[in-house]
Nucleic acid binder design. Structure first.
Length: 424
DNA sequence: TCTGGGGTCCTCTCTCAA
DNA sequence: TCTGTTGAGAGAGGACCC
């Protein structure tokens, strides 16, 4: 008996670009590119008219504009996409509670419990597509298979095809027959496998491994030597369609961070100190909004030649206060070389704990740092709470550290701001 | 072509303690 | 007391995903 076809992968078609066209119908039929509009921006999403001339997501915007000079380039509206994504999620919830969101525009669904009410997986996929078209006026592609790997590849096979005369409709729904899984899987390039990016694909190519079928026929022990222990074992299983990963709901957040690429490389240490202050402040706000604290603070720098370094410091207790995060991040930055010029700067916090979990073993998430009085600590927590409250009411730019006034301004980065590169 | 920003996970190296 | 082994944890780097 074969396993049931209960895993659906739903993927919106050209999501960000499609939402922009939905909100401004005059864009219909035009090549639309959403992404970072500056010289260092990248493409986040593009319409099929843009894809027809070779524009792809993650492509540098300079190259995208070169390939498609008549494209309408938009910087994107993360808030709006989030709103549509929530409505999409509500549609999924009609059919199953077991949903694993992958990003704003795609998710895995386990529909094993929905057959009695909604019919076969094919009928559920058809119903989801109909609801998305009717309620959101958007289109999506659905892959149906026995496991996540195959469902994901199937949704790709269901997609429309870009052509110079306009997008050609795809099947919309693609089912991988359990009897013909390897026939479907093995001719595909290794890069179609989850975990094989450009580097690994290049390494495998050196050993003559180009397709998933090639990979399947390599001895598992050899594979471990090529790509490492963990990846080797996993890739060999995936190449034989052995994938028992369940559809996971509500995976906990492991880290919270902000990073930003500057329009021009920054050499001035004082300017970098102000930027790191701004970012640590923003990370602190987000942590407190989620009632989280973290034990490890990491500062990341990328230089002009793209080499990237990180400097981190772990504490014995979680912190969420902006003042403490700023202090630690600034100290980490001061130990890093900024001479070559910094292209990107980032601050992140990991080893997260919720306040409830932390208070079980600690005095509190905002327990005083070494040498600090309870009074100072309490005052700092009060200050954070007041700042958070003012920002919630009047916006993020309403209040912030005095050091930032007149420098880069009270610009506190928000999730989704300049998401795809600097605006200049 | 010249490469974003949100993340997760893995590997290697070093240190320290048992 | 010294030496070797092992395991845990931290720090750093890198690959990957959307």
């Amino acid at each position: 008996m074969t396993a049931p076809l209960d895993i659906l992968h739903v993927d919106m078609d050209a999501f960000f670009a499609a939402v922009e066209i939905l909100d401004d119908p005059s864009l219909q039929g035009l090549p639309v590119i959403v992404g970072g509009t500056g010289s260092r921006g990248v493409v986040a999403s593009c319409s099929y008219e843009a894809r027809a001339v070779g524009v792809r997501s993650a492509m540098p915007m300079v190259e995208a504009r070169r390939r498609c000079p008549r494209a309408v380039v938009l910087s994107g509206r993360h808030g709006r996409y989030g709103e549509v994504s929530r409505r999409l999620h509500e549609i999924f919830e009609v059919f199953t509670p077991i949903i694993e969101p992958i990003s704003l525009d795609e998710a895995f669904l386990d529909v094993s419990g929905g057959h009695r009410l909604f019919g076969s997986s094919m009928e559920i996929a058809e119903a989801i597509r109909a609801r998305v078209a009717e309620d959101l006026k958007l289109s999506c592609s659905v892959g149906i298979a026995r496991c996540k790997l195959l469902a994901k590849l199937a949704s790709r096979a269901a997609k429309p095809i870009a052509s110079v005369s306009g997008p050609l409709a795809g099947p919309g729904i693609f089912v991988v027959d359990p009897e013909r899984e390897l026939e479907f899987l093995h001719p595909r390039p290794v890069s179609d496998l989850w975990g094989v990016g450009p580097r690994t694909a290049e390494r495998l190519a050196r050993y003559g491994i180009a397709t998933i079928g090639d990979l399947a026929n390599v001895d598992a022990e050899h594979l471990v030597r090529f790509v490492g222990r963990s990846a080797g074992a996993q890739l060999h299983d995936l190449a034989w369609a052995r994938d028992d990963r369940p559809v996971e709901m509500g995976r906990p957040v492991k880290s919270v961070g902000h990073e930003e690429t500057f329009a021009v490389d920054v050499h001035d240490r004082e300017q970098l100190r102000l930027e790191v202050t701004r970012m640590a402040e923003a990370v602190g706000s987000r942590l407190r909004a989620s009632d989280l604290g973290g034990r490890t603070v990491t500062v990341k720098l990328r230089y002009g030649d793209f080499t990237t370094i990180t400097r981190s410091h772990s504490l014995h207790r979680p912190v969420a206060s902006s003042a403490e995060l700023v202090k630690i991040a600034a100290a980490l930055l001061s130990g890093a070389d900024v001479h070559p010029g910094v292209r990107l700067l980032g601050v992140s916090v990991s080893s997260l704990e919720t306040r409830a979990a932390a208070s079980g073993e600690q005095l509190s998430l905002w327990e005083p740092a070494g040498g600090e009085t309870d009074l100072a600590s309490a005052a700092r927590a009060d200050l954070d709470a007041v700042v958070d409250a003012i920002r919630e009411r009047y916006g993020v730019a309403a209040v912030g550290p005095a050091a930032l006034v007149g420098a880069s301004g009270l610009r506190v980065k928000q999730l989704g701001d300049s998401q795809w590169g600097p605006s200049r």
